[in-house]
């Protein structure tokens, strides 16, 4: 197991977990390697790893390690 910081909380993930795994776990939706929801529709979510945006195309190949800080954001009401 490795402990990653997701949206300011410690989350235990399996070794060699990727951004796809972290997003699937956070949103509770099953995702393809391309980062698309298996149940169809758009996900509407973006990810920053240590302050840098990780494009969806790189989610499946970006491994997470101890001490990584992940922000998973979405659209909310505002403006």
């Amino acid at each position: 197991m490795t402990t990653v910081r997701i949206n300011d909380s410690d989350v235990d993930l399996p070794e060699q977990a990727t951004v796809v795994d972290a997003v699937a776990r956070t949103t509770g939706r099953e995702l393809t390697d391309a980062g698309a929801p298996v149940d169809g529709g758009r996900l509407g979510v973006a990810v920053a790893l240590d302050g840098e945006v990780v494009p969806r195309s790189r989610w499946a190949t970006t491994e997470l390690g101890a001490g990584h800080e992940l922000e998973i954001v979405t659209a909310v009401q505002g403006g």
């Binding site: 949206n7 300011d8 956070t26 949103t27 509770g28 529709g41 758009r42 996900l43 509407g44 979510v45 973006a46 922000e71 998973i72 954001v73 979405t74 659209a75 909310v76 009401q77 505002g78 403006g79």
Partner: peptide, 27 residues
């Protein structure tokens, strides 16, 4: 318009889904 915030189980993606369903573009 919408704002960008951390994903929480409560916020989910409800506003985004609603706008998409209504055919309204997001700003």
């Amino acid at each position: 318009t919408v704002a960008m915030r951390r994903y929480t189980p409560e916020t989910k993606t409800s506003v985004f889904s609603m706008l998409e369903r209504l055919g309204i573009d997001v700003l």
